[in-house]
Design a binder for these strands. Structure first.
Lengths: 273, 273
DNA sequence: ATATGGGTTTTGGTTCAACCATTCTACTTT
DNA sequence: AAAGTAGAATGGTTGAACCAAAACCCATAT
């Protein structure tokens, strides 16, 4: 079966993946996902390859198409594959990932595993290494880019555009992270900043008037290659920001949001229907 | 709206979640997952709550049970819910998460987004802030625990148990991360160390004879509260380890593993017309 | 009364056989 | 040759059914 689909031409098609094995453990889809991951780790599946169609895969694995789809769902959520409809569609091994980590952090925040104070704490720690490394690597063009960001933030302030300004401020940190040229730092910092942006957006406006002057001072040290001074400036700014957040959160949060509940339910009332 | 609170006490039943809406966009399960995430973010769903059964949910959302399951699969992969069989089973809002971040990093490594050199680089950076903070917080009991770990590693070395020794060494770093008492640091460091453990396991034995003496020196500084010296000791040890890895990887890797990644075969429009 | 044990119910896990919408191919028509 | 159209491939969805595990209920035996 399936020996020869379209014979000739074939022009790069049907990934070179090895034979998959039949499933037996509980939760078949878990094992399917694991097997595909293994293929990936071994290098037999590489970015850009296309997996066989759902129908073909379900046959290879010896499971129903629904079960197979649950496995694909899991891989897709992880960012490992990208699903594409249509004739030449299918499941393609995808590059990025990273996104899953950001949503993971966001989830942890929403579920209360990460408290706001811990978020800003970790952010300050991470920023120190980011700044130090970015300072070591930044080119003149990079410094221009950072200065431009500050100008834009100032412009937003002039317009009274608080949201736009906060966004610029956060983008500044993303730029610094990218300057480290290390995907782990970029991904983690992006995730942390995503959560922070969400957090900031929720607590509303707060005092950040001191940020712009701090940025200017920061850039002086940064451009001069004085990493220690740049880190110190950034740290003091972030700590002050944290105080702003915290006073704001006490004003805002009488109760809402991240509150946990533990209402255990007892009897199944057979209601419904 | 939602003025219908159950009368007090009420033997609580069926999580307090609000009414879900019917689905309409492409990829119904995406929207289902998004809606449940929203409930979570808003606090209407909290850790420990149980969602209605798949059958009930599929009815609420107006989709088939299969579609609903794909949404749940996605949430489960994210670590947001935990599925449990049986009469009192169902989908429970779960605490942990974090795990998803570790597998995310692992995936990025496997897919080539993270190169070994970048892994160790980030690890060194992160370790510096971890050590500094752990040093600030460690109690006498914590220091005992760390020393015990070193003893065990030494014992493993005596037995010629390379794997056990490497494991102890990595566990040492996990302990330090936990001492920061910051979930983000713990999660990220755990993920990085997971990848590292995988990496180490793949390249086989390497020269790590210098680690134990370094650990002893490290603990001296650490116990004395001299964070700077402790960081310096750790950093030099890690950099030396990195050199060990790299020389080992050149010996091992003529080609295998993390290659791939270039053969993008995106969409050849009318490939080979 | 108190265990004990088995049946019933609830719930997730899986299967099957369709159907739809989209996307590209290939053929037909002009 | 260009344009248009039929159709095949593929992911997305449906609904009904069955299985297996887990918790509960209750009759039975001790």
């Amino acid at each position: 079966m399936s020996a020869s689909q379209l014979p000739a031409k074939s022009s790069a098609e049907a990934a070179p993946l090895a034979q998959f094995q039949r499933i037996r453990s509980p939760r078949a889809f878990d094992e399917i996902a694991a097997q595909i991951r293994t293929e990936l780790a071994s290098g037999r599946l590489a970015v850009g390859n296309r997996l066989p169609s759902e129908r073909a895969l379900s046959e290879q694995f010896g499971v129903s198409r629904n079960t197979l789809r649950e496995a694909l769902r899991s891989l897709e959520h992880a960012g490992l594959i990208r699903l594409q409809k249509g004739a030449r569609g299918g499941a393609f091994i995808s590059q990025h990932s990273g996104e899953a980590i950001a949503t993971g952090l966001m989830d942890m925040y929403h579920v209360g595993t990460i408290q706001p104070a811990q978020l800003t704490e970790a952010r300050i720690w991470l920023e120190s290494v980011v700044v130090r490394e970015a300072c070591r690597r930044a080119t003149a063009a990079d410094i221009d880019m950072l200065n431009r960001n500050i100008d834009e933030a100032q412009e937003a302030r002039r317009r009274g555009d608080f949201a736009g300004r906060a966004e610029r401020h956060i983008e500044f940190h993303r730029m610094l992270a990218r300057l480290t040229d290390n995907p782990i730092m970029v991904i983690v910092m992006n995730g942390v900043l995503d959560v922070l942006a969400h957090f900031v957006q929720r607590i509303g406006e707060y005092d950040n008037s001191f940020v712009l002057p701090s940025r200017r001072r920061f850039m002086e040290h940064f451009a001069a290659g004085d990493a220690d001074a740049a880190v110190a400036e950034m740290e003091s700014c972030l700590k002050r920001l944290q105080r702003s957040y915290m006073s704001r959160i006490q004003a805002t949060e009488a109760a809402p949001a991240t509150k946990a509940a533990s209402r255990a339910r007892r009897s199944p009332p057979t209601a419904q229907r």
